[in-house]
Design a protein around this nucleic acid. Structure first.
Length: 288
DNA sequence: AACCAGGGAAGAT
DNA sequence: ATCTTCCATGGT
């Protein structure tokens, strides 16, 4: 077991992060200790990492704990990316104080973008979430992980594509996945196992290149690409305007009678570049 | 009971 | 190319 302390640029409000993660029945969150356990695959080795806040919003710092001292450097690098400790929120905050989203950014100041813990699972989650209400989507995700993943050191590790590629469509239908969802998830996993879809190679590609690779895959449309870029790769300038949640958030913000048109969504978002992902994030928060 | 859900594919124009 | 319909399942 090793420990490491990390300091981060203010503002960074970890309690906001934990509140959000606590909505997911799979996450292991201890609100009182401001701590969470993160399941990471490092070079295919499952490692449970503890992340505890030992600072505050205006002076953020963290204590990291895990086994595998030989993987320490890689673990910290991955955590820094996942929790966006290398991003400074202050200039982003400044930018939005001069837009329609001023109130939102005052209210949620210091809320960082948090990435999914794994690229493959980010994609699977997107496929599960398509056209489902959040509650049911969480339940399906939980069933999926608890059926095909594994528990270790008190956390659930997501299944690897190799496990899912072996399944029959009926295995997922048994968990109340629709036939199409089952096909999308298993077929995509098979592409990955066969080496025809390499998610890790997308990490350094431009947004447009990522879209060009993912869109031809059956089951992946624009919304899924945008969410993968946002929550998988942590790209800063995404606004999934087809997202029903964002539409509802805008409707609420502007007190519209009905949901905004795509043209309205498009026009508004212009003011928020080049940090559209943060506009999306804070808008989602405004309706939770 | 009808309508909706953090979409996308397939069919129709 | 763009517009419309169907898909499947649970939640409200």
């Amino acid at each position: 077991m090793w420990q490491q302390q990390i300091r981060v640029n203010a503002p960074y409000d970890f309690s906001r992060v934990l509140e959000r993660l606590a909505l997911d029945p799979l996450s292991i969150v201890d609100i009182e200790r401001q701590q969470l356990t993160v399941p990471l695959y490092i070079r295919n080795i499952p490692v449970a990492v503890s992340v505890q806040s030992i600072g505050e919003k205006s002076n953020p710092a963290f204590l990291i704990e895990a086994a595998h001292p030989e993987l320490k450097e890689e673990i910290i690098k991955r955590l820094s990316h996942i929790f966006q400790w290398d991003v400074s929120l202050a200039p982003i905050q400044q930018h939005f104080l001069q837009t329609e989203l001023r109130q939102l950014f005052l209210e949620h100041e210091g809320t960082p973008l948090i990435l999914d813990f794994d690229l493959y699972f980010c994609l699977v989650k997107c496929l599960i979430h398509q056209q489902l209400n959040l509650k049911f989507a969480y339940r399906l995700t939980e069933r999926f992980v608890k059926t095909f993943g594994m528990e270790q050191d008190g956390v659930w590790f997501y299944p690897r594509p190799e496990e899912i590629a072996k399944l029959e469509y009926d295995d997922l239908k048994a968990l109340q996945f629709s036939g199409k969802k089952a096909e999308y998830i298993i077929d995509t996993s098979r592409l990955i196992v066969e080496g025809k879809l390499r998610l890790d190679e997308l990490a350094h590609a431009a947004d447009e290149e990522v879209a060009k690779v993912l869109l031809p895959v059956r089951g992946i449309g624009p919304w899924t690409v945008q969410n993968f870029l946002l929550f998988g790769l942590g790209r800063p300038n995404l606004f999934p305007k087809a997202d029903i949640g964002l539409q509802r958030a805008i409707q609420k913000l502007l007190q519209l009678e009905r949901k905004p048109s795509m043209e309205q969504m498009e026009a508004l978002s212009k003011h928020w570049e080049p940090y559209l992902s943060y506009a999306s994030l804070y808008l989602w928060r405004s309706i939770e």
